[in-house]
C-alpha cells in the first residue's frame, strides 16, 4: 500500500538540514570550536597530566611561552597549556548544566504559567519579576557569597539567576501559540488538553528557547568565569579558566600570557556556542528546512 518511502524522505530531510546548517560558514566554524572544546572537556585528563594543578614548581614560575611550555607557566610554575586543557571540563560542564537546568525549570514554569493563565500566571510572573529585578551577576554574587565558595554553589547561583528569562519567554510563546487556530482546531477534533499542550503548543513554543539556550551557554560560561575571577568560583586548586585569569591579573605587566591564554579560551568557547545558536534556528524550523 505504501508507495512513498518514509525513510528516504527522512534521510533527505536530515541531509537538507545538515546542508542548511553547513551553508553558513560561521556556523560551521562555531561547531568546530564547540567540538574541539568538548573533546578537551571529555579527554583532557587523559591528554595532559591530570595532577598538574597541584604540582607547584616555584623555580619555573612566570616563564614566558617557550617550546617546553607553549603557553608559558603561571606564578606557581605550572604549565598553562595543561591547566587550560584541564579547565575545559569545569567550564564546559558548568555552563551546560546551568543552561540545561535553567531551561528545564524555566520551560516548565513558563508553560504552566502560560497555559493555566489567570491567578496562577499572575503569581508566577510576579515572582519572576522579583528575581528579574536584581541585576543577574550581582544577584549570583550575593548567592555564592551567602552559600560559600564551591562549584555546586556557583551552579546553584547561576541557575537561580538564569531560569527566569526562559520562564518569561516560554510563557509568552505558550500564550501566543495557544490562541492560534490550529489549537482551536485540535480542540474541536476532540484532542485532549494534555495532548494539545504537549504535541501542539509545546513543540511550537519551544524552538525559540532552544536557540536562545544554545547561545546562552556562552553567556553562562562568561558569567561563571567572571564569578570565579572575583573569587567566587570553585576551590583554588580546581583548574578553571576564570581563576587562571584572576591569577594572571596580578602579573598582567610582567607575565601577560597567564591572563591572555585562559581569556582566549573563554572567549572562543562562548563564541562557538553563539555561532551555533544562529544556525540552529534555520535547522529547527520545517518551513526553512524543506
Amino acid at each position: 500500500m505504501k508507495k512513498v518511502n518514509e525513510w528516504e524522505l527522512k534521510k533527505k530531510e536530515v541531509g537538507y538540514a545538515l546542508w542548511l546548517f553547513s551553508r553558513n560558514k560561521l556556523v560551521v566554524f562555531g561547531s568546530l570550536i564547540v567540538v574541539f572544546y568538548t573533546i578537551l572537556a571529555i579527554f583532557g585528563p587523559f591528554i595532559v597530566n591530570p595532577k598538574i594543578s597541584e604540582q607547584v614548581d616555584l623555580s619555573n614560575a612566570l616563564k614566558p611561552p617557550t617550546l617546553q611550555h607553549i603557553f608559558g607557566t603561571d606564578d606557581l610554575g605550572r604549565d598553562l597549556l595543561q591547566l587550560i586543557v584541564l579547565g575545559a571540563r569545569f567550564d564546559m560542564s558548568i555552563s551546560l548544566m546551568v543552561v540545561l537546568t535553567a531551561t528545564l525549570i524555566g520551560v516548565t514554569i513558563g508553560s504552566i504559567s502560560g497555559y493555566a493563565g489567570g491567578k496562577v500566571d499572575e503569581i508566577i510572573m510576579r515572582f519572576t519579576d522579583i528575581l528579574l529585578a536584581f541585576p543577574g551577576l550581582v544577584f549570583a554574587m550575593g548567592i555564592t557569597m551567602a552559600l560559600g565558595r564551591s562549584a555546586v554553589n556557583l551552579f546553584l547561583a547561576l541557575t537561580l539567576v538564569w531560569w527566569t528569562g526562559y520562564a518569561r519567554i516560554m510563557r509568552g510563546q505558550v500564550l501566543s501559540e495557544k490562541e492560534k487556530l490550529y489549537v482551536q482546531a485540535a480542540k474541536s477534533l476532540g484532542i485532549p488538553d494534555f495532548l494539545i499542550l504537549f504535541k501542539h503548543v509545546f513543540p511550537n513554543a519551544i524552538y525559540p528557547i532552544l536557540v536562545l539556550a544554545t547561545m546562552d551557554i556562552g553567556g553562562v560560561m562568561l558569567s561563571a568565569a567572571g564569578l570565579s575571577f572575583i573569587g567566587l568560583g570553585p576551590s583554588p586548586f580546581e583548574p578553571e579558566w576564570g581563576q587562571l585569569i584572576n591569577r594572571g591579573a596580578s602579573y598582567l605587566f610582567i607575565a601577560p600570557w597567564i591572563m591572555f591564554f585562559p581569556g582566549l579560551a573563554v572567549l572562543t568557547a562562548s563564541l562557538g556556542f553563539n555561532l551555533i545558536g544562529d544556525g540552529l534556528r534555520d535547522v529547527l524550523d520545517p518551513r526553512l528546512r524543506r
Partner: peptide, 11 residues
Amino acid sequence: FQDPYASLNPR
C-alpha cells in the same frame, strides 16, 4: 475554518 494554513500545526 476559513484559514486552512492557520488551522494546521506547522510542525
